[in-house]
C-alpha cells in the first residue's frame, strides 16, 4: 500500500457530494495502477475459490462492492469518535455486520447460490482489501470520498475476479453464465453435435480445479505488468 493516496481532511468548505477530478481518480486508479489484487496483493483469498463460475464471481463482486463502499462510509462517519485502542475491533464489527447483512439477504434472495458460495461470503470479513481501505483511507477522509474510494477498490477487485471467472468457466465448462459457448453441444461430455463449429472443444477439467485460478491470476499479472511496465517488481 506504499503508493496509496492518503489525503488529509481539508478545511476548505466543499459540497458533501460532488463528482470531480479527484473522485474520478479515486474511482479509476484502483482499476489499473493501484489494483488491489494485481498490485497491492490484497483480497486474493476469496477471489480464487469463487471463480469457477461467472455467476458466483459476479455475486461475490457485488457483495464486496456493497460491503467495501458502506464500511468505508460508516467508518469515515465514525472516524472522529472511534477510540484508538479499539480501532481494529470497531472496524471489524462494522464489516462483520455488513457481511452478515449480505449473507442474510443472499439467503433470502437466491438460496442455491448462497449454498454454493457457502463460507466464502463470510470470508469477505477477512478480505484484506476491506480492512486495508478502512485503515489507509476511511479513517482519514470524509464520508463521500471514502464511499467513492470503496467503490473504486471493489471495482478493481471485481474486474480481476470476473476476468478469472470468465476464463475458467469458458475453458473449464465451455459456458459463460451457464450459456453454452464452445464444446460439444446439446449434452455435456457425450453426444458431440456436428452442427456447431465450436464443438471440437472438450472442456478442460483443470480449469475448474482450484490451482488453475492461480495460473490464470499469474498470467493476468504477467500481462498487466507487460502492458503497464512501471509496475514491474525490481527487487
Amino acid at each position: 500500500m506504499a503508493n496509496t493516496t492518503v489525503q488529509q481532511d481539508t478545511q476548505v468548505k466543499e459540497p458533501i457530494i460532488s463528482f470531480g477530478k479527484k473522485e474520478r481518480k479515486l474511482l479509476l486508479d484502483p482499476l489499473n495502477d493501484n489494483n488491489p489484487i494485481t498490485v497491492q496483493v490484497l483480497g486474493i483469498c476469496s477471489a480464487l475459490a469463487v471463480t469457477t463460475l461467472l455467476l458466483k464471481a459476479v455475486t461475490m463482486a457485488l457483495a464486496v462492492i456493497f460491503v467495501l463502499a458502506f464500511s468505508n462510509l460508516f467508518t469515515s462517519l465514525l472516524r472522529n469518535y472511534i477510540p484508538k485502542e479499539v480501532r481494529m475491533i470497531a472496524q471489524l464489527i462494522i464489516i462483520a455486520t455488513l457481511v452478515t447483512v449480505v449473507a442474510l439477504a443472499l439467503k433470502a434472495w437466491d438460496y442455491p447460490l448462497y449454498k454454493e458460495l457457502s463460507v466464502f461470503v463470510g470470508l469477505i470479513i477477512t478480505n484484506c482489501i476491506v480492512m486495508g481501505r478502512l485503515e489507509a483511507f476511511a479513517l482519514a477522509n470524509k464520508p463521500w470520498p471514502s464511499f467513492i474510494d470503496g467503490i473504486g477498490n471493489a471495482l478493481g477487485y471485481s474486474i480481476i475476479l470476473i476476468m478469472i471467472a470468465t476464463v475458467r468457466e469458458l475453458f473449464g465448462k465451455g459456458t459463460i453464465m451457464g450459456w453454452k459457448i464452445i464444446g460439444p453441444t446439446s449434452e455435456y461430455l457425450l453426444n458431440t453435435s456436428s452442427l456447431s463449429w465450436l464443438s471440437w472443444y472438450q472442456p478442460n477439467n483443470l480449469m475448474v480445479l482450484f490451482p488453475s485460478a492461480m495460473f490464470v491470476l499469474g498470467v493476468i499479472i504477467w500481462l498487466h505488468r507487460s502492458w503497464n511496465r512501471k509496475l514491474i517488481d525490481v527487487s
Partner: peptide
C-alpha cells in the same frame, strides 16, 4: 521481468 515477484509466486 513482468512475471517477477508476485506473478511467479502465484504460478
Amino acid at each position: 521481468a513482468p512475471l517477477r515477484g508476485l506473478g511467479i509466486a502465484f504460478i
